[in-house]
Computed example of a mutant assay.
Amino acid sequence: MRRKPLKSALLLLSLALVPVAAWAAWLGWDQHRDVHPDGSVTGPYEAWQVIGLVLTVAVPVWWAASRRLFAGAVLATTAGLTFAAAYDWSDDSSGLFVIGVGLVALGSLIGTSALCAVATSVTRNRRPASPSQPEA
């Protein structure tokens, strides 16, 4: 079954824009680091923010993977998260943000690939056998 080109393009664009919007909603507003009484510095993000981002992005990836849109789910989501990280961190004067952006790209590529594999396995086992194919 082939999709119409415009519909496919809009779907890929949506799969890329959801992570950008999720990044802005969960991480984009928090730009300050926390200095603790012992002098250590953490942040700018808290664990709950990153978990929220991951869960938010996982929903459209699962949806796309369950409809056999693996490349779009993996590549568009990875591109969206990588773009968001690069845009958010590009004001770092040390230039080390490039390493962080690379790690976001690698991590999102691995994470979305793994989620697609799980979604495919789960949805494949839940679909009923077609009448022309006997059940195993």
Rank of each mutant, 00 (worst) to 15 (best):
R2P: 12
R2Q: 12
R2Y: 07
R3P: 00
K4D: 10
K4R: 12
P5N: 09
L6R: 10
K7D: 12
S8F: 14
A9H: 00
L10H: 09
L12T: 01
S14R: 03
S14N: 14
A16K: 07
L17V: 07
L17Q: 01
V18R: 01
V18L: 11
V18C: 02
P19L: 08
P19F: 05
V20L: 11
A21G: 08
W23C: 08
A25N: 02
W26H: 03
W26G: 01
L27D: 10
L27V: 08
L27N: 05
G28P: 14
W29P: 06
D30P: 01
D30A: 15
R33G: 00
D38G: 09
D38Q: 07
D38H: 01
T42W: 05
T42L: 03
G43I: 00
P44T: 09
Y45T: 03
A47E: 06
A47T: 15
A47D: 06
Q49L: 12
I51D: 05
L53A: 11
V54Y: 07
L55H: 05
L55C: 13
L55Y: 04
L55S: 04
T56W: 13
T56C: 08
T56D: 03
V57L: 12
V57K: 10
V57D: 09
V59A: 11
W62E: 07
A64N: 15
A65D: 15
A65K: 14
S66I: 02
R67V: 08
R68A: 11
L69W: 13
L69Q: 13
L69A: 10
F70E: 15
G72D: 00
A73R: 02
A73F: 04
V74D: 06
V74Q: 08
L75N: 04
T77S: 15
T78I: 12
L81K: 02
L81N: 13
T82V: 14
T82H: 07
F83C: 07
A85P: 04
A86N: 10
A86Q: 04
D88Y: 03
D88Q: 06
S90G: 02
D91P: 03
D92F: 09
S93C: 00
S93F: 00
S94R: 03
S94D: 00
L96R: 10
L96A: 12
F97W: 13
V98F: 05
G100L: 04
V101F: 05
V101M: 07
G102E: 08
L103N: 07
L103P: 04
L103Q: 06
L103M: 14
V104T: 15
L106P: 04
G107K: 00
S108A: 13
S108I: 09
L109N: 10
I110H: 09
G111Q: 10
G111W: 05
T112C: 05
S113R: 00
S113G: 09
L115D: 11
L115V: 10
L115A: 12
C116W: 04
A117Y: 01
A117Q: 03
V118G: 12
A119K: 01
S121I: 02
S121L: 11
T123A: 13
T123M: 15
T123D: 15
R124A: 14
N125P: 00
R127A: 15
S132Y: 07
S132K: 03
Q133M: 12
Q133Y: 05
Q133T: 10
P134E: 10
E135Q: 12
A136M: 04
A136C: 03
